[in-house]
């Protein structure tokens, strides 16, 4: 494992923990956090790590899989079940139609996968879903029109994770003999482009000192 991938995993973990700790500490998610995005991420981890008991890669991988599943489920649990956090969630702003995204990702996984097995189709599904899982969050930010520190940091760390993973792939492409993983790399590029778009508007709003407004 190279340093870029490790740093990518750590920023990914940081983004989730920041969100979880802040929701828990403030007992509120009234800061523009999309429950739909969080549920999609929990589903991403659950469907990707079906290989937890069948394919052993390393202790690091096995432990991180458990941590990612547990922390993402904890966020969803807080937002759905915690009496105070649940009250602070404004579902009228969280309007993204995630059903269509789920269906599209599943159909794409049925068509485009490495091997046609249950695990592999769901692995591909999780890769496609992760690429677009941030969309409800971006739509929510656009509708609520403000980005506070928590949400800013959260998206910042997620973006760093994506960027580091791309550097990791470039590094692996040049240092490994048979590094071909088109599904993960192309989906990863799409996902990073979504963040790049967000950061562009984030930067503009910061530079002009105006409220963040994302185009419709």
């Amino acid at each position: 494992m190279n340093i870029f991938r490790f740093a990518g995993d750590m920023t990914h973990l940081m983004s989730i923990l920041i969100l979880l700790l802040k929701i828990y500490a403030t007992k509120s998610c009234a800061v523009g956090i999309s429950l739909k995005t969080q549920e999609l991420y929990a589903l991403v981890f659950l469907t990707r790590y079906l290989d937890q008991f069948t394919d052993y890669v390393s202790l690091y991988n096995s432990v991180m899989k458990v941590v990612f599943i547990a922390s993402s489920l904890a966020i969803v649990w807080c937002m759905r079940r915690h009496p105070l956090v649940r009250k602070s969630y404004d579902k009228d702003l969280d309007t993204f139609r995630h059903q269509y995204v789920l269906l599209a990702c599943f159909v794409l996984a049925l068509l485009l996968h490495e091997i046609f097995t249950f695990q592999e189709v769901f692995w591909a599904f999780s890769i496609y879903l992760e690429a677009v899982a941030i969309l409800p969050q971006l739509v929510l930010l656009q509708r609520s029109g403000n980005v506070d520190n928590l949400t800013g940091q959260y998206v910042l760390f997620l973006g760093a994770y994506r960027g580091l993973y791309i550097i990791n792939w470039i590094y692996r492409y040049f240092t490994e003999d048979h590094f071909t993983r088109w599904i993960a790399c192309v989906s990863g590029l799409v996902q990073t482009a979504l963040y790049a778009d967000f950061f562009y508007y984030y930067y503009l709003s910061w530079k002009t000192n105006t409220k963040l407004k994302l185009p419709a």
Partner: peptide, 10 residues
């Protein structure tokens, strides 16, 4: 040797 279906990343 790299196996295409071995997913070693998270």
């Amino acid at each position: 040797q790299d196996q295409p279906h071995s997913h070693d990343e998270l």
